[in-house]
Amino acid sequence: MAKVSPQWKQAKLTAFPKRFKDPMVHTSNRPISLWIFGFLVLLPCISGGTTMNMNMSCVWYPSLDYARVAMECSGPLVTKVPTMLSSDLKLLRLTGTSITSLDSTSFEGRSLAELTTLSVSGGALARVAANAFCPLPALAKLDLSLNQLDHLDALSFKCNKHLRTVNLSDNPSLHHLPLLCVPADPERFNCERLADV
Rank of each mutant, 00 (worst) to 15 (best):
L144Q: 04
D103I: 12
S156R: 00
T165K: 15
A129G: 15
L89M: 07
M71S: 11
L115Y: 01
G75Y: 07
A129N: 02
Y66T: 09
R68K: 10
L92Q: 01
L77Q: 01
Y66D: 12
T116Y: 08
T95I: 12
L168P: 14
G109A: 09
N167C: 01
L155Y: 00
M84Q: 06
L168D: 03
D88A: 13
T117M: 04
V69C: 08
F107M: 07
S63H: 09
S63F: 03
H151F: 15
T83E: 14
S145M: 12
L136S: 03
N167H: 15
T105W: 13
L92C: 08
G109S: 05
L85M: 12
P137R: 09
M71H: 11
D88K: 14
A126Y: 09
G109P: 00
S145D: 01
L174H: 02
E114A: 11
D65R: 14
L174A: 07
S111P: 01
D143S: 12
S111Y: 07
F157K: 02
H151Q: 12
A67S: 14
S173D: 10
V120R: 01
R68H: 14
G96K: 04
C134A: 08
S63K: 12
N171M: 15
G75I: 14
L85S: 06
E72M: 13
L125A: 04
S119D: 00
V166K: 15
P82A: 04
V69M: 06
P82C: 03
E108G: 00
H151D: 05
N160E: 08
T97Y: 05
S173A: 14
L139Q: 05
G109H: 04
R110W: 09
L146Q: 05
A154C: 02
S86Q: 10
S145N: 04
D153V: 00
C159S: 08
S86I: 05
H151L: 06
S63L: 05
A126Q: 13
K141E: 01
G96E: 13
T95L: 02
D103N: 10
A124Y: 06
R93S: 03
L64G: 08
T105L: 13
S145P: 06
S86R: 12
V69H: 13
P137G: 04
D153W: 04
L94P: 02
D103V: 10
R110T: 14
S121N: 09
C73I: 03
S119Q: 13
S173T: 03
A113F: 07
N147S: 15
R164T: 09
L163Q: 04
L152Q: 05
S121D: 11
S106A: 11
N147A: 12
V81H: 02
T165H: 15
T97W: 05
Y66H: 14
P82F: 03
S63A: 10
S98G: 12
A132W: 00
T105N: 14
L174C: 05
E114P: 02
L77D: 00
K141W: 01
